[in-house]
Nucleic acid binder design. Structure first.
Length: 659
RNA sequence: GCCGGAUUAGCACAGAGGUAGUGCAUUCGAUUCGUAAUCGAAAGGUCGUGGGUUCGAAUCCCACAUCCGGCUCCA
């Protein structure tokens, strides 16, 4: 618990009284002076000229402790207690409902219930109303400690009273630690197993909202019963709660599925099947610009391009092991003249065939084979999500064949490439280093070398990362980069994986300087991930305000009336000659209408031409941010060309959210 | 795949058992405009698909498809 200290203290107590406390008094000391009745409320005290909120939770040791409301833990405690309040309300309204678990999430809480039916939106309203009643009743929260010798009796009690989930949770706790001390939190006649801490009274929970109900498997296992989960959130103030709900609404406006429709980027027709993307001209243009950029980078970084077939005899995937381990995610076989063919779900087997097309010397290594490749995966229907999770995907895939000695440099190269790419697009990634799992193959030497190489590469680039202990593939360790969508969901993007397994399976070899045959290591890597998901992420990241180098239409020239048409055509020609994507909007519509249309389409520059501009050889430049200025035609060209060349990030994206 | 919700014109939506509606977009006409929607008219729909109940179904029931939110999955 965070405790603040102060030098001199003149206290103004929440009840209005004044109090002097000696210098050096801490917030904890102050709290000790606050009566228990005041602890029922979130109280504010003046501490050395600074107002802090004191929040008194009931902790794991059964005592009151101090948390300031600024402390991230305080919000967690409030939300955890809100979850209890919700469960309390649910069990009052729906007596058959059994509680299971109810944790805190990144920005709220949920509770899973076992009930005869799912809860409806109307149920949520009733539950919320009941929660308000319980909050107003200001029920005291207390903590019961069950010593180890009494836990078996408690378990039996749960079973007798029709609380099988509580009994199961207890059984698991005891299995892990037979001497564990169990705690139960009570409020009124309601209680649940919980380690706490919690707020001391339900009256502290005032600003909350139930968001939605959803199904969730007991213990997260799809073989188990499906429970009903209710999500909610809670804050200390109504303003914070409202701000959160507004943020959710704003985030929905950036949804790539919505923007993809509005900006005519892509479509997924129902008749052609789910998860299969049709890129419309504007979306295809953006994608092709990114592909062009990527190809030029790949050349600079020593990759060789290859092409491999989309459909091959499934023998290839028997050898690679995909049919054994990955078949449920592959489209079914097609019978062609008595042989089974498959759509490829990955490129590594194909690239292995290219490696095998001739014998290799150690002098050929590292060999970096690259392909912007379509693959097809039979993703389960409930998992599809716009461009972010699809069945036909385009990977910016490459496989690097190298020696164990070359591995560190190759990995460093990949990490640098990924870092450069995320920087250019202005994205932020969360990085995970996944280490050796329990069920793993391969030598310790390989695992140590590869894991160290991955770690060193990250550290040398100064990249913060989390370790996903045991999260590696069975064949090798990896680095995963995750991006966030508009509402904070994590999506896997770039990845670097070390793999000695496929070279083994395909019997890939090279002749070493010692004259002996050796086995290369394969590095799988993707810089953007897939084009589909990457587009989804940047659409949401920019909120549709693409940087100039990516904007499908970079500028639109708008004559105020017909008399200015000729000048406008000349301007359009000049800008196009400079390589800019410019449109002329001389439709018979009002100026306001055409400006609005360009704004809605998020065109970066609107170039308005009236009598003045024609006379002076200028353009009235309006940016999508609303900024206006008058510049000569040449200045406009120079500025836009420079903005394209520097791949400047859009200012509008941030401002869009505010609009 | 599982739980729940949704599906009405190109898009956004109204319509809760009795002749299918609104706004925007589209087309036509008028208007020629100085920085986020000029006015008028026309055209546009097997109400996701299939079955059922009913004298009668967009509306009620069943199945399927697709989408949305979760869960699971994403070697």
């Amino acid at each position: 618990m965070a405790v603040e200290s102060a030098a001199t203290i003149a206290l103004e107590m929440p009840d209005g009284s004044k109090r002097e406390v000696p210098s050096g008094t801490t917030a904890a000391d102050v709290a000790a002076q606050i009566s228990r009745s005041l602890a029922k409320k979130a109280v504010a005290a003046r501490l050395d000229g600074k107002t802090i909120d004191l929040f008194r939770p009931l902790t794991a040791d059964g005592k009151f402790a101090i948390v300031t409301q600024d402390d991230p833990e305080a919000l967690e405690i409030l939300r955890h207690s809100s979850a209890h309040l919700m469960a309390n309300a649910v069990q009052r309204l729906y007596p058959g409902a059994k509680v299971t678990i109810g944790p805190v999430t990144a920005d709220g809480f949920f509770y899973d219930f076992d009930y005869e039916r799912a809860f409806t939106p109307e149920d949520l309203e009733k539950i919320e109303a009941e929660m308000r009643k319980l909050s107003q009743a200001d029920i005291k929260v207390s903590r019961e400690v069950v010593p180890p010798d009494q836990t078996p009796a408690k378990m039996a009690e749960f079973e007798q009273h029709g609380e099988p989930y509580k009994a199961e949770i207890l059984r698991d706790i005891l299995a892990a630690d037979p001497q564990a001390t169990i705690s139960i939190y009570h409020q009124g006649d309601w209680s649940d197993l919980c380690v706490g801490p919690h707020v001391p009274t339900t009256g502290l929970i005032k600003h909350f909202k139930l968001l939605n109900a959803a199904g969730a498997y007991w213990r997260g296992n799809e073989k188990n019963k499906m429970l009903t989960r209710i999500y909610g959130t809670a804050y200390f103030t109504e303003a914070d709660l409202k701000a959160h709900l507004t943020r959710l609404e704003e985030a929905a406006k950036r949804d790539h599925r919505k923007l993809g429709k509005e900006l005519e980027l892509f479509t997924i027709p129902e008749v052609t099947g789910p998860g299969l993307i049709f890129w419309l001209p504007k979306g295809a243009l953006i994608r092709s610009i990114i592909e062009d950029w990527l190809r030029s980078e790949l050349k600079k970084r020593g990759y060789e391009q290859v092409y491999t077939p989309h459909v091959v005899k499934e023998t290839l995937f028997e050898v690679s092991g995909h049919l054994g381990n990955y078949a449920e995610n592959m489209f079914p076989a097609m019978d062609v003249e008595g042989a089974n063919y498959r759509l490829k779900p990955m490129n590594c087997p194909g690239h292995s065939m290219i490696y095998k097309s001739k014998p290799h010397s150690y002098r050929d290594l590292p060999l970096r084979l690259q392909e912007i490749a379509n693959v097809y995966r039979y993703e389960r229907s409930g998992t599809l999500h716009g461009l972010a999770r699809v069945r036909g995907l385009t990977m910016d895939d490459a496989h690097i064949f190298c020696t164990l000695e070359q591995l560190p440099d190759e990995i460093a190269g990949c990490v640098e490439f990924i870092q450069d790419a995320t920087k250019i697009f202005g994205l932020e990634a969360k990085v995970y280093l996944s280490t050796k799992p329990e069920k793993a193959i391969g030598s310790d030497e390989f695992w140590d070398t590869a894991t160290n190489a991955l770690r060193t590469a990250l550290e040398r680039k100064g990249m913060a990362y989390d370790i996903d202990e045991g999260g590696g593939a069975f064949y090798g360790p990896k680095i995963d980069f995750k991006f966030y969508d508009a509402i904070g969901r994590e999506w896997q993007g770039p990845t670097v994986q070390c793999d000695p397994n496929l070279p083994e399976r395909f019997d890939l070899t090279y002749r070493g300087s010692d004259g002996q045959e050796h086995r290369p290591i394969m590095v799988h890597r993707a810089i953007l991930g897939t084009f589909e998901r990457f587009m989804a992420l940047i659409i949401e990241h920019y909120a549709g305000h693409f940087p100039l180098w990516l904007a499908p239409v970079q500028a639109v020239v708008i004559p105020i009336n017909e008399e200015n048409d000729a000048y406008c055509r000349e301007v359009v020609e000049r800008l196009r000659s400079a390589g800019l994507r410019v449109e002329l909007d001389n439709r018979n519509e009002s100026l306001n209408y055409r400006i609005r249309e360009a704004q809605v389409q998020k065109v970066p520059y609107m170039l308005v031409v009236g009598k003045k501009e024609v006379e002076q050889g200028t353009l009235a430049v309006r940016q999508r941010t609303g900024r206006q200025e008058v510049l000569s035609v040449q200045d406009v060209i120079d500025r836009l060309v420079q903005e394209v060349e520097t791949k400047a990030l859009p200012q509008a994206a941030a401002e869009a959210v505010a609009q």
